[in-house]
């Protein structure tokens, strides 16, 4: 870990000022950044501790506003999250370990970086760590890598579970920088790698996530999150699905689907949703919609199974949810 300075921000404005246009890095619970700094993947010269920012979870226009410094565990434990957005609570408790969930902030979870082994390894080539260096993952161990939206430069996946539920629910992130504030749909926050895999998000240098807003979404109350992984707990997703569906007289009146473990960003399944809306809520249609969503998938040597796995998991999650409809 290279030497760095440390400062604690009193509030969001203080944090943005201290970050000095991106010279300093924001530090939340430290569960990812401290590890990456120790691995020398991240080499910050200054850290601004933003755990003193808002941790509130508040009602806002029928939805919820979650302070960026709220701990993951606190979000999953919150009554309104559990009852109105259960897939979000489920996604959080499916991720990491209890200790990490107690430390990690919502903002930090959103901005966590890929667990691609080649990104972590200083002895390997990685375009995300060093632009233009090349990618050792494409021909290497890529069982855990992306099948959707990857590029010739990068096949890494975004590791968050929480973000998959946020993406399904049309959450927006509240941002602040020296010039002011803005909001952004979370589905627009993370990037696909293209030829700039070093950029995980569209955030400007020094820009800070101050909150996440969940809109009012009635169907979210019966949402589900299913995570498929290599061990029964404490493992990153090979594929995960967050979904909610509303069925009226056997017809899909509304649906939300997002996937984890398959792309450089939490993958909102717009194609599958469009294919399902207004159609019959049958397992067969769910299966076909899932196949349409995965039609553009490209398999690497070790991850072709993810395509079939994602299709199956989407189909089963939707079938189960539709079966629970009153």
């Amino acid at each position: 870990m290279r030497p760095f300075t440390y400062a604690r921000a009193a509030d969001a404005a203080d944090a943005v000022r201290l970050a000095d246009g991106g010279r300093a890095r924001y530090l939340g619970g430290g569960t990812n950044l401290v590890d990456l700094a120790r691995e020398t993947v991240e080499r910050p010269e200054a850290l601004v501790d933003v755990t003193g920012l808002s941790t509130a979870i508040e009602e806002i226009g029928g939805g919820l506003l979650i302070g960026a410094a709220a701990r993951n565990a606190a979000v999953a434990e919150h009554r309104a999250v559990r009852t109105r957005y259960p897939a979000l609570a489920r996604a959080i408790v499916a991720g990491a370990s209890a200790q990490i969930r107690n430390m990690a902030t919502v903002g930090g979870n959103i901005l966590q970086r890929t667990r691609c082994a080649y990104f972590y390894d200083d002895g390997s080539r990685c375009n995300k760590r060093r632009p233009e260096q090349g990618c050792d993952a494409i021909e290497g161990f890529n069982r855990g890598h992306a099948v959707l939206g990857a590029s010739a430069a990068c096949v890494a996946t975004h590791p968050s579970d929480m973000c998959v539920a946020l993406a399904a629910f049309d959450a927006t992130v509240h941002l602040r920088n020296a010039d002011g504030e803005r909001t952004l749909p979370i589905t627009d926050l993370h990037r696909l790698p293209g030829n700039r895999p070093d950029l995980d998000t569209v955030l400007e240098p020094g820009e800070l996530i101050t909150a996440v807003e969940l809109p009012a979404l009635a169907l979210a109350a019966s949402s589900a999150y299913r995570k498929v992984r290599d061990r029964a707990s404490y493992a990153f997703a090979l594929v995960s699905v967050a979904a909610a569906i509303e069925v009226t007289d056997g017809i899909v009146s509304d649906v939300r689907i997002a996937l984890g473990g398959v792309a450089h960003k939490p993958w909102r399944a717009w194609t599958a949703e469009a294919a399902l809306r207004g159609g019959p809520a049958t397992a067969e249609r769910f299966r076909r919609a899932a196949e349409e969503e995965l039609a553009s998938a490209v398999a690497l040597r070790h991850n072709a199974f993810k395509i079939e796995l994602a299709e199956r998991t989407i189909t089963t999650v939707l079938t189960d949810l539709a079966g629970e409809q009153p």
């Binding site: 440390y6 430290g30 569960t31 401290v34 590890d35 120790r38």
Partner: peptide, 27 residues
């Protein structure tokens, strides 16, 4: 492991379990 993957460093901070390896003392 010193990277949050094993839990051997678990301590309680104000009664909450955390991983002391990923916690900068200054925080």
């Amino acid at each position: 492991c010193n990277q949050g993957a094993c839990g051997a460093c678990t301590v309680l901070a104000d009664g909450e379990r955390i991983l002391s390896c990923l916690a900068l003392a200054v925080q």
